[in-house]
Design a protein around this nucleic acid. Sequence first.
DNA 1: GGATACATGTAATGAGTTACATGATTCC
DNA 2: GGAATCATGTAACTCATTACATGTATCC
Lengths: 167, 167
Amino acid sequence: MSLRMALLGLLASAGPGSGYDLAREFSGSLNQVWAAGHSQIYPELTRMAEAGLVDVAPDGPRGRRSYSITDAGREDLRTWLTRTEPSRAVRSETALRAFLLPVLEPEQAADLVRRELEVFHQRAAELAKIVDRGRDGFGYYAAELGLRQAKAISEWAQWAADELKGE
Amino acid sequence: MSLRMALLGLLASAGPGSGYDLAREFSGSLNQVWAAGHSQIYPELTRMAEAGLVDVAPDGPRGRRSYSITDAGREDLRTWLTRTEPSRAVRSETALRAFLLPVLEPEQAADLVRRELEVFHQRAAELAKIVDRGRDGFGYYAAELGLRQAKAISEWAQWAADELKGE
DNA sequence: GGATACATGTAATGAGTTACATGATTCC
DNA sequence: GGAATCATGTAACTCATTACATGTATCC
C-alpha cells in the first residue's frame, strides 16, 4: 500500500509522468525514505490503472505511457494519509547492528561504529543542502526529518565510540 | 540474512533457547529494531541447523527444541558484523508520510504531525527507562540509538507543526 | 555507426505477514 | 475441569530484489 501511496503522491504533486519518470524520482530524494525499483513500479501502475486510481495516456515515443492521478486516486491518497494509522515498524540494519554490538570485542565494535559515524555524517551534509534549498515543495519536510535523524545517528555513533573506549 | 544474524546474536549473548523463547525476545526490546514473528523464526532455525550454525537439543517438555550457537555460527555472525557493508536502505512510513505532507491542507498535515509527535514522545519515554537501567548487556546501545532517534522525530514533528502554522 | 539514455516489461527468488492448525503442561 | 501459557509448525499471500530480456530515440 505504501508504494502505491508514494506513486500517487508523486503524480499528485509533480504532475503526470511515466513509469520511467517515477522510477527516476524514486532513485532521487524519495530514495532516502522509500526505495523501489522499476520492476516493482511498472506492475503496480498497471494495477492502479485497473483500480481507476490513475489514467493512462499510451503511445508516447518509445512506447512511453504517461500516467495521471484521477479524483479517485487523490481521494485514496488523502484517506490513507488522514485516516489510517501509520505502521511504525522499524527495520533498520544500523539499529540491528547496534543491538548486536556487545557480541564483538570493544575494538571491533568501535570500528563498526566509526564507519556508521562517517556514513551518516556524510548523509547529514547532503540532506542539509536539500533543506537549504528551502520549501520548493516536495521533499522539504522529509529532508528535514532525514537530516535530524542522520544527525541523531551520527551523534549516537560518537557517543558509542566514547562509551566503548572506556571498556 | 538479518533475521539470521539477529537470531545468532540472541543465542550468542542470552545463551541457548527455543524458537518460542526467541520469538518472545523479538516481541520485547528487539522489536524496536527488527521485528519477526514465530512463523518466520521456526523455519529459519531449521535452515540454520541444516547449515551447521546452531545445534539442536530436541525432546524437551511439550516438544520443546533448544537451540545453541555453534562455533561456525559465531564465526558467521562476527564476519557479518565486521566484514559486510550494512544496508542503509530506509523504509519508514513516518518518513514517507512526511514526504507526502504537501499534498494535504496545512490543517490536516498539522494533525498528522501532531499524532507522530505524541507517539514518538511516548516511545522516547519508554526507551529512556531502558537506557536508565544501564549497561546490563544486550539492547543497551540499541536503546540509546532508539532514544536519540525517537527524540529526533518528535522534535521534527514539533518543528513541522510550527512550520505548518505559518502557512 | 555506436554509445547513451529512454522506456517497458517478466521471471525467479527471497523476505515478511496473516491466518490456520494442533497439542502439552501448568496454574487455579 | 477450564483457562492460560508454552510450544511448534504450515499455507497462502503480499511485498521486494535481482536478473533477464527487448526495443526506440537521440546525441556525437
